[in-house]
């Protein structure tokens, strides 16, 4: 990648004996909407703090906007917008006071940069005199995003911005991120919600401090490489065990209220699976072929990683 906005190479960080990040390498281009997807404990927050110059790496390096996060931390701090995972605004200050304050510590004013945050801020402007602590989860995140944007950053680092936010607000929030991307801002997001991966330009699937895969969400699902079936029966508790016992089973795992199943046998059809299960004494068996989602890919990759 030529002149990436973020260049991470072999980044490693441990807390005591616990390895939070294991030799992570990623390049993120200017104007990209990039997602780090992974469950709690994958090392997302550690990575964001390292990028935001708040932690020192044990080894490896990271560059943001061409500045090293260790030696160039002062420059990086002025040019990025950072939104920590925990709601980090002043709960006892009003919406407007918070925004004015954060504009102030970045050497600007709300009036001056109103146009930058207008799209987002107008959602919460009717509540501008309300204390931040009294806002709903979604409004809090919109305010936090406005505060992180007020000084026209070139790179936005958003650590789990949609955690604890209702479905509607999450959708609105992602719309806003897309608009920001359109304006040329590099947006780096982390999230534990697999369904949000599809909204990113590219994602890195993370687990236990390592990257399992980096690619566009479309490419990741395209590389799934197996026919995927969604299976249900009257005796769900028995179903998973029975599926794992089948001769050609490649993988079987719970997915919502169904079980997702892949087979080594390329000839496998819904009918052949159903017949197998009926023979095992299952009733009302429903087998449907489905398209793999990022979550399926993630689970499969995780299983491969654990078996390796």
């Amino acid at each position: 990648m030529i002149n990436p906005h973020i260049h991470i190479e072999g980044l490693t960080k441990s807390y005591g004996n616990e390895k939070a990040l294991k030799a992570l390498s990623v390049d993120i281009a200017k104007g990209e909407l990039f997602g780090f997807i992974g469950p709690d404990g994958a090392g997302k927050t550690t990575l964001f703090r390292l990028l935001a110059t708040l932690l020192l790496p044990d080894s490896g390096s990271a560059e943001v906007l061409g500045y090293d996060t260790v030696s160039g931390y002062k420059e990086i701090r002025k040019q990025i917008g950072y939104m920590p995972g925990k709601f980090s605004l002043y709960q006892d200050l009003s919406v407007e006071e918070n925004l004015n304050f954060f504009a102030g510590i970045h050497g600007t004013t709300l009036q001056e940069n109103y146009h930058l945050v207008q799209d987002i801020y107008q959602h919460i402007e009717p509540f501008k005199n309300r204390r931040a602590g009294k806002l709903s989860g979604g409004m809090k995140q919109k305010l936090a995003l406005s505060c992180a944007l007020i000084h026209q950053p070139k790179v936005l680092l958003l650590d789990e911005p949609t955690t604890g936010v209702d479905a509607v607000s999450r959708q609105e929030f992602w719309e806003m991120l897309k608009n920001l991307k359109e304006k040329g801002i590099t947006v780096v997001v982390s999230t534990p919600y697999m369904d949000e991966a599809a909204l990113c330009d590219r994602v890195a699937l993370m687990q236990k401090g390592s990257v399992l895969k980096i690619n566009t969400p479309q490419q990741i699902t395209a590389e799934f490489g197996h026919a995927l079936f969604s299976i249900r029966s009257d005796t769900m508790f028995k179903l998973l065990g029975d599926l794992l016992q089948l001769e050609n089973t490649h993988a079987a795992f719970r997915f919502g209220d169904t079980i997702h199943f892949t087979s080594h046998n390329k000839e496998e059809t819904s009918q052949s699976i159903a017949n197998n299960l009926i023979a095992q004494g299952h009733h009302n068996v429903v087998v449907e072929p489905v398209l793999p989602t990022i979550e399926d890919c993630f689970i499969l990759l995780m299983k491969m990683e654990n078996n390796a």
Partner: peptide, 13 residues
């Protein structure tokens, strides 16, 4: 404790 120090550090201050 509130996490606001993180945001203060990542600023022009």
């Amino acid at each position: 404790e509130m996490g606001t120090m993180e945001v203060l550090l990542v600023s022009h201050l």
